[in-house]
Design a protein around this nucleic acid. Structure first.
Lengths: 172, 172, 172, 172
DNA sequence: CATGAATGAGGGTTCATTCAT
DNA sequence: TATGAATGAACCCTCATTCAT
């Protein structure tokens, strides 16, 4: 809280004029920092049915840029950290961010299936394969302090989509 | 520490009879709960060159069973939670678990490339695609308390490998 | 820290609003309670060259009044008490109090030698003979709770200087 | 206590078979490590009336060797450290060590006065001048970690007695 | 006589939160 | 609206002491 106050140019006490508790602030932080990505997914799901693969790629690109930003990823990181003591905040995150994003992704995937460009695969499994590698890279970068692929987001996305769309297997 | 002590039926002080510090305790926890998976990866990398895809599938299966166990996943979760205050523990985790596992995976992938069953793709990107979805599912299950795909590990692995090997794209 | 907090009418945590650590607090305490005496010694060393014996007597008098005050002597007492666990605080005390005082004393002694009023004796030994008895009396008074000579500082100083200047020996 | 147990080749618990508490052990330690010096003073007081100055010199020499030993000085140091919380131990030390030693010293001094080799000076002041410099040197050495005069005990004692007997003053 | 295992109380320190101003 | 001052509870850790064996 002290750091946040300092960053905001306020006293610690003043924060409580705007947010009743740290948890409330964290919810607002989720709204400000990560919910926009979920909303962007919803918008793209609504608008991107014409070219679902392109929409997915745009989404992945946006996600990569956001997840690569330490200040953004600090939010899910915090949520994970306190989820043991404050499960409600995790529920809030699931409901207001991840489930929204997954629903939007599934809509795009379904659109892709309808257009015949995506195989008939379980949608939940696809969103997992879509989000997982980016999420893991964020952990690797920000938590484990490994050498980050976010340094070159373009390549990261290219590789991600190459594997996601074409798979690993060598084909004749 | 208090929680751990309580769970062990001990006083806080008694923990220090077994571990000299919180960091040592966490290292021991890592060694006991998650390092075995990394070691298994190393064994399979050494032994599984004959059929790399099978070795990878076995590894994913083992990982799925472990990651589905709340007591096992509690360890990386803890590491993430305290990585802000104890960055060394994150470094330890990266060095002794994730880097070891990634190295083993890359060896298997390279074997697959050599045998001509895996395309020529960046190995780091492949390990990301291999680990990420399972890791994300663990987060979804244990942290976000979403409906868990670990309830049916067989299907989870089938879906994971189907996407990983064949990709999403509909092909003629 | 708890005792200090209680004495100040504060909670333990509140101390950290004023001092960043226990060591900083102790340093401030030293600066406030005992360093002034060392500084006074330096001043007298600079100004008292005309009559070094008088300057030494003034210094001893000031020291006696200070050492007789339980609140002042509490500081070196504390330093001794925690010097085992916090050797740095002992080093701080040596550097910023005792060495400064000894240097000032040695300067006065050298001035005395130059003026021909003090014999040619090892200066370190002289400072020892100057400080030691007063320090011992403080220990006797505050730690051992013996009957205190600080009750009559004038006599204490007279006796101290009589012995210090003239020695014990009966002379013809 | 742990260190003491280790040094004694015992378990921590075994110490309590020999001493009912840390304070009792500390009293025994006083008896073993510093009381002998007080006893030696008493013996010399009884036997040394023929040459009191020589007896005092022998006593100072014995004291210097003991005070220079960190293991011996650890005892008064400990007493000082805990005297705030356990005033009884300080009283014990005063009664069983310091008062005994001062009484013996005063007897020797009185003998010196009777023989006409020591001036008529307040005895308490003399014991202060006798003990103080050696005590201060011990503090300087063991607590403040300054360069120790105990490294050359002979010189230390010579200087001490030169000042003590002859005083600082230049005489014609 | 001796110990391994355990603990309650305390150590210094941090942090989310409160409240008088 | 904003703060400086303060705190209770928690943090990791140490230590004198106990007790079943």
């Amino acid at each position: 809280m002290e750091d946040i106050a300092k960053a905001a140019g306020l006293s610690k006490a003043a924060i409580y004029l705007y947010f009743p508790s740290k948890m409330a602030l964290l919810e607002a932080l989720i709204e400000a920092k990560v919910a926009p990505l979920a909303n962007q997914a919803q918008s793209l799901a609504a608008a991107g049915a014409a070219d679902p693969l392109m929409a997915l790629r745009m989404l992945a690109t946006a996600a990569a840029y956001r997840a690569g930003d330490a200040k953004v990823f600090a939010v899910p990181r915090l949520v994970i950290g306190i989820s043991g003591r404050f499960p409600e905040i995790a529920d809030y995150y699931r409901t207001n961010v991840v489930e929204k994003a997954r629903a939007a992704l599934e809509a795009l995937i379904d659109a892709g299936k309808a257009k015949g460009v995506i195989r008939d695969i379980d949608s939940k499994a696809v969103t997992r394969a879509f989000i997982g590698p980016l999420f893991f890279e964020a952990m690797w970068t920000h938590v484990l302090r490994g050498e980050s692929a976010f340094a070159d987001p373009h390549t990261l996305i290219e590789q991600h989509f190459d594997i996601l769309l074409n798979g690993l297997e060598q084909r004749a």
